[in-house]
Structures are given as C-alpha cells and as structure tokens.
C-alpha cells in the first residue's frame, strides 16, 4: 500500500487541501504529521504544504527548516523518499539545502494571488511524469515571496542538468519577462534535485486538481507520484 505524509507546521494553511487532493487523485492514505514530532511514519511521498510556517519570521521557511520533524524529512529524502514542496514547502526545501537557491520577496513587492501559466521543462521527475515536456499548464500562485534567486553558476548548473521543472510562461509557451509574476531568475517556478525525486514549486497544484475548482492541470502532479511509485514497485 502506498502512503503519503503531509507535514503540518504552525502556520501551514494548505495542508488539508493537499491531503484531500492527494487522496482523491491517487488513493494514497495520507498521514498528517506535526512539526514537533521527530519521525515521519513510513511514507512513499512526503509533502511540505503551503502556508506561512512560523509566521514567516526571520525568512520564509527558515524556522520550519530547523523544526524537529525536518531532521527526519531530510534523512528520508536522502534515503530515497520522494518529497514535494509547494509554495512555503518549496521555501522550506531551499532553507534545508535539499534544493539550491532561495525564494525572495516578489520584485513587485505585491502578494500575487492568481492563475499563472507554466511551461513544463522536465517531465521526468516523480511529480511531473504525467505531463509532456513543453506542455503549458494553468496552476494558481499565491505568494509574497516567490522570487527565485540563485547565483549564476547554480542557475547554469540547474539548467545544464535539466533540473528546472516549471517556468512561468505565456499560454503559447513563450517565456519572457512579461510572463514572470514575481521576478524569479530565468522565470523559474519549480526545480528538482539531481535524482528527480525532490521537487519544489511556488504554484499550488492542489488548488486546481478537480473540475469544481475550475481546472484539473494540478492533478497530474499527484497522479505522477502514483505512476512513479507504481513503476518503482515494478
């Protein structure tokens, strides 16, 4: 039986949404795991949800990255468990060092809450297998600190290793400054680690996973996890 865990930090606010999206898209039973716990129950997938963990004090994701549960999340991620960080979860993954770079204040200084279109750059990760490369998908963003920054060597390395997963793009797939909602370098909306198992992104796939929500483009991220796990099990 495949199992997933969602880590709940004080200030997480998308934890329930992602649990429901995961359950309905994949049938995975989902554990909710409190930040103060020291061990994640046996899981095939761990999700770090969106929200404002620890009130975004100091830097977004910084406090959560050092919470007791994260020691085990990092250990499990390094031992092969797939990890998805959404929005604040992406910020936490960067702060733990599981993913490179950092999410800074949006260049506009405005909180952005709207649908954006993304171009799928890497359709080989655990969470993007059910998309096609260069496919354009619509997924909402809701963040004040989504401006992806890394030094140019790191960015070149990410691009060279095909580790950019999503870029902000126009609906025809063109990537330019006008399609960039937050000033992210090279329009980066999501990245992966070298193993394609640890993925972080600013947009919220759980907010468009079924038609009553207005679209289903996010659902394939969760279905991808299911397909990846099924493949791994043979």
């Amino acid at each position: 039986m495949l199992r997933a865990s969602v880590i709940v930090f004080p200030g997480s606010n998308c934890d329930r949404d992602v649990k429901v999206a995961l359950e309905k898209s994949t049938g995975f039973p989902v554990n909710m795991v409190w930040h103060g716990d020291t061990e994640v129950p046996a899981s095939d997938v761990i999700v770090l949800p969106g929200g404002f963990s620890y009130g975004d004090y100091l830097r977004c994701g910084a406090m959560a990255a050092h919470s007791p549960i994260m020691r085990d999340v990092v250990a499990k991620a390094k031992s092969g468990v797939a990890v998805l960080g959404i929005c604040n979860g992406f910020q936490v993954l960067c702060e733990t060092g599981l993913l490179p770079g950092v999410l800074m204040r949006n260049a506009s200084l405005k909180f952005m809450c709207r649908d954006v279109t993304l171009r799928v750059e890497n359709a080989d990760t655990t969470f993007t297998k059910c998309y096609r490369k260069d496919q354009v998908v619509r997924i909402p963003v809701a963040h004040g600190d989504g401006n992806y920054f890394a030094d140019s060597n790191t960015l070149d390395e990410l691009e060279g290793e095909d580790r950019v997963v999503f870029r902000y793009a126009h609906s025809d797939g063109t990537v330019d400054k006008a399609a960039n909602p937050n000033g992210s370098q090279r329009n980066i909306a999501g990245i992966t680690d070298a193993s394609n198992r640890i993925v972080g992104l600013m947009p919220h796939p759980e907010r468009l996973y079924e038609l009553p929500l207005g679209g289903t483009d996010g659902r394939r991220m969760f279905e991808s996890a299911l397909v990846s796990m099924a493949e791994a099990m043979g």
């Binding site: 100091l58 702060e95 950092v102 920054f149 890394a150």
Partner: peptide, 9 residues
C-alpha cells in the same frame, strides 16, 4: 551560518 543569515543571499 545555521539560522540567522541565509548565506546564499
């Protein structure tokens, strides 16, 4: 190094 500053930026 561990918490107060993010050495990336």
């Amino acid at each position: 190094e561990e918490l107060l500053a993010n050495m990336v930026i």
